[in-house]
Write a protein that binds this DNA or RNA. Structure first.
Length: 277
DNA sequence: GCCCAGGTATAAA
DNA sequence: TTTATACATGGG
């Protein structure tokens, strides 16, 4: 990745393609919104940014160069070679080539661990517009106000509350799951930061001690919140696709990039619903 | 009204 | 260990 600072912002030439729509709308995140001019805006670690695509460049507006290095470079995984990863997945597992080729430019964001955990608890048995609505109300009601929006409330802040206190966000049965997670994370009973490097099976066991966190939410937290690219959040559709069209594909073949491969399989299954009916 | 949403807890077989 | 059902809410 190379970049330069101009009057417009930080102009980046990423390693491998970076498609804003495919990255922000593939279901991995809920706090980025498309604006009327094709750019996307969001808030990460309390900082607001706007991204715009221009030829091979991506321009990040409204940030400092210091924050680019502190936050955004890692958040967008800009030093990872996603074209190389795609090739590696296809070579290790040729059966997945059609899925890998079905979408280009997805990058796995490195979201804040607590926000990812909380967001994917909310996502269960839910649809994306409503998930975003609940998260927006959670931030506006319990986060800190900043320019252009609100921060995601910390686990410590939410741990002060009881499920009834969340009624205004209309999270339904998930309210008590959010509060249980907040209490376990803020007390240190669950220590998210160690999950960047701890054995992944230990991380899964720990996360699933939270009420409302099953296998799927645990894997999503590890993939999207802790950037464990080997995590593998399968859903019902993917299980069917793996049992039929991609039969024979094993997690060992996909190896260290199972989570990224899963993103391609998920997209391909959506494009070809007959594969999973 | 009815069905479903990138699931999980709970109770039963 | 596996299978059925409820769960809150709202978009299509």
């Amino acid at each position: 990745m190379t970049y330069e600072v101009t009057e417009r912002g930080i102009e980046i030439i990423p390693k491998g393609k970076f498609d804003l729509k495919n990255t922000f709308e593939c279901g991995q995140c809920f706090r980025w919104d498309q604006r009327n001019d094709d750019s996307y805006s969001g808030i990460v670690r309390g900082k607001f940014a706007t991204l715009r695509s221009e030829n091979e460049k991506v321009i990040i507006e409204g940030i400092t160069e210091e924050d680019f290095h502190e936050i955004w470079k890692d958040y967008f995984d800009l030093n990872n070679d996603y074209d190389g990863i795609r090739n590696e997945i296809s070579e290790n597992c040729p059966r997945l080539s059609c899925a890998v080729g079905s979408i280009d430019g997805i990058r796995i964001l490195s979201q804040e661990p607590w926000e990812a955990l909380c967001s994917f608890i909310i996502s269960q048995n839910n649809n994306i517009p409503r998930i975003k609505g609940i998260i927006t109300r959670l931030c506006e009601g319990f986060g800190d106000k900043i320019d252009h929006g609100s921060t995601f409330p910390s686990a410590e802040r939410l741990a002060e509350l009881e499920p009834e206190d969340l009624s205004e966000i209309r999270a339904g049965f998930r309210a008590r799951y959010i509060i249980d997670a907040a209490k376990k994370v803020s007390s240190g009973e669950i220590y998210l930061d160690e999950m960047y490097t701890a054995p992944i099976s230990d991380c899964r066991t720990q996360l699933m001690r939270i009420t409302g966190v099953g296998a799927k939410v645990a894997e999503c937290t590890l993939l999207y919140g802790l950037h464990r690219l080997e995590a593998f959040p399968v859903d019902v559709w993917m299980k069917k696709a793996l049992a039929t069209h991609f039969s024979g594909v094993t997690i060992e073949q996909i190896g260290r990039y199972a989570g990224i491969a899963q993103q391609y399989i998920f997209h391909y299954s959506r494009l070809n619903p007959e594969l999973v009916e």
